[in-house]
């Protein structure tokens, strides 16, 4: 079963320094029917003005992933990390029993676009941790490239939940099949371009919630760039 949520129907918020397009309830946007999907609680498509960002604030018991799509992000936290990441890099923070952090656009000239993803952790109350990793941008083409996973490796960030986040670039007509346990949930985001998922069309910016589908066939329109999350239904 595939439920597509068109980009045009996503909530949007414009604070001047931040344009945000949350897929699920966040902040003052609250829709009791849109509070998450499986273990995913937040999927924000954020655009931050140069030099601007989120001041010091806490997090706890949440696995937080920031994927930079354009520009550069500076992350600083109470664990002592101070890291700048750009496209090709991913930041993962396991908030556990608590961490204070800031996130700012590290550029004074260029807009920052990033995906902010929050997931419920497999285990609560753990020691907080942070990791910045990089993936090989040249290997995105025509594969589902894992960038964050519970099965971490040198270029795949670890996460404290049984999930994997994939990125992929597909050319016109290229096809990928993803096989998973039908009890798991899949979240699909057409970041750029368009594609068909098991025959259902997604345009740029559209997202899809996929359930009870052990096999997912993705066929690209022109120059598709997508994110796929394979995750459990519950923590």
């Amino acid at each position: 079963m595939i439920n597509v949520f068109p980009a045009a129907e996503r909530h949007s918020a414009d604070l001047g320094w931040l344009r945000s397009f949350p897929s699920y309830s966040f902040g003052d946007y609250y829709d009791p029917n849109r509070t998450g999907f499986g273990v995913m609680r937040v999927c924000n498509d954020d655009y931050l003005a140069p030099g601007r960002g989120f001041g010091a604030h806490p997090h706890s018991d949440m696995e937080i992933v920031s994927i930079v799509l354009n520009g550069r992000i500076r992350h600083e936290d109470s664990l002592g990390n101070n890291v700048v990441s750009s496209f090709g890099e991913v930041q993962r923070m396991s908030a556990g029993s608590g961490v204070i952090h800031t996130e700012f656009n590290a550029s004074d000239e260029e807009e920052l676009r990033l995906l902010q993803l929050w997931f419920m952790p497999k285990e609560r109350g753990t020691a907080p941790s942070y990791e910045a990793s990089s993936f090989d941008v040249g290997k995105l083409h025509n594969v589902l490239l894992p960038v964050v996973s519970a099965q971490a490796s040198e270029r795949v960030a670890w996460i404290g939940q049984d999930l994997t986040i994939y990125l992929s670039r597909l050319g016109q007509g290229e096809r990928i099949v993803h096989v998973t346990d039908p009890d798991r949930k899949l979240f699909l985001f057409a970041i750029e371009g368009s594609l068909r998922a098991n025959g259902v069309s997604l345009g740029e910016g559209d997202t899809a919630q996929i359930e009870r589908s052990g096999e997912l066939e993705l066929v690209a329109g022109p120059d598709a760039f997508l994110m796929l999350v394979d995750m459990p239904a519950q923590p």
Binding site: G55, E76, S78, G98, I100
Partner: peptide
Amino acid sequence: AASRIEYDPHQYSV
């Protein structure tokens, strides 16, 4: 509450 963190919002570089 199980624990707490005190912080000065200006202690960070940005």
